[in-house]
Nucleic acid binder design. Structure first.
Lengths: 203, 203
DNA sequence: CACAATGATGCAGTCAATGCACTAATACAT
DNA sequence: ATGTATTAGTGCATTGACTGCATCATTGTG
């Protein structure tokens, strides 16, 4: 599993991320070219796009893993859990994961700033949110099967993710601290899901 | 207001959109270059980017106007309306606007297909949704002022927009008819806002 | 009728992103 | 151990999105 090959690949990827963050922080996103990042990481320009599909993706280095955390949480739900409980738990775990990775090393702060200032980053992050939504909705349907209409599953997940992201961006724009941002995200999740809970009980 | 200059500008813009849709339908999005679109519209390549910031933006030709419809609906809310009523009304008007413009001329169908197949389109549309959310949230705060926490306003709008968009994409992927897609979007909006209503009443 | 504002255009240039061919290191099977 | 298949990294060439700048022509204005 953890072969030497994969270790090295992971290492070069980490080098690219580290070099990218340093350069972007120093020069800004637009002024930093993919070639520069590769050069700073002592790698070929071509190699950058071997690891990241777009220049913006370097800011989503841990995003796939984070989505997997949510999907796994849904798959490993306790037997009697309702959809609401499962979804809230999954979102909480994703927020925790974000805290222990991106927030911890400052990636989250940089990304947040760029979301507000660079349209391309904003677009790529928003797109990723959509993809994550799809995966979460699929996981929900896999777990609850016929009890859950596909469109309803998508709408529920969309509401939660939309609320959490919007709260995060709003808190950011208001200059709130990372802790307050996190709090805003958690409250938004509970708020969005709480409402679904009411609907769910009405069935 | 409706000067000759603006008329002509609007006209060239419409030509670009028409040419783009024809070409994209025939060749696909990736195979169609901005230069080709301009040429088909009998305009200079440079002119394309005078009207659209990105190639994807041609698919969002009426998006700014649609957002304005929502913002205006919020601004023109009846005196006693609750936040929920106002928001639901705004979203309904936006869905109606989409029906009478993009759905009517087939733009919506093409866009929906491209969202599912072209990452760049997906990204740009998602980004636009974020921007629209910001404007709607600002309008809400302008109308309700101190009664509405900025983060809560953003979260509410994010939940509704997220739910509606997710429902639309899910309905699309399931091959539902435009009418069914519209129905799914309306139900998602009511669902997402209905939950907020519960929260609102609990205050 | 000047004069300011602005839409369309041409030109040159930057840079993201991709396809292809190639090397070298690693994994794997006999 | 040795041959063989993968695959990460690289170089090269190319396409095409997008921008800055300078210019021309048309329209709005006093």
């Amino acid at each position: 599993m953890a072969g030497l090959r994969e270790m090295k690949k992971r290492r070069t990827r980490d080098q690219l991320v580290a070099a990218a963050l340093t350069l972007i922080r120093a020069q800004g996103f637009d002024k930093t070219t993919a070639a520069q990042i590769a050069e700073a990481a002592e790698l070929s320009p071509r190699t950058f796009f071997l690891h990241f599909a777009t220049k913006e993706d370097v800011l989503l280095a841990n995003a796939a893993e984070r989505t997997a955390v949510g999907v796994d949480a849904i798959a490993a739900r306790p037997p009697g859990a309702t959809v609401d409980e499962t979804l809230l738990d999954a979102v909480r775990r994703m927020i925790d994961h974000n805290d222990s990775t991106d927030v911890a090393d400052g990636l989250a702060a940089l990304r947040a700033e760029l979301i507000a200032t660079v349209p391309a980053v904003r677009a790529r992050v928003a797109e990723h949110a959509l993809t994550a939504q799809d995966e979460l909705a699929d996981a929900l349907r896999a777990g609850y099967g016929d009890d859950l209409d596909p469109i309803e599953a998508a709408a529920r997940v969309g509401a939660v993710v939309g609320a959490v992201n919007a709260a995060m961006l709003a808190a950011l724009r208001l200059g709130r601290s990372p802790a307050d941002q996190r709090d805003a995200m958690l409250r938004a999740a509970e708020f969005a899901i709480g409402s679904e809970g009411a609907t769910s009980q009405a069935r």
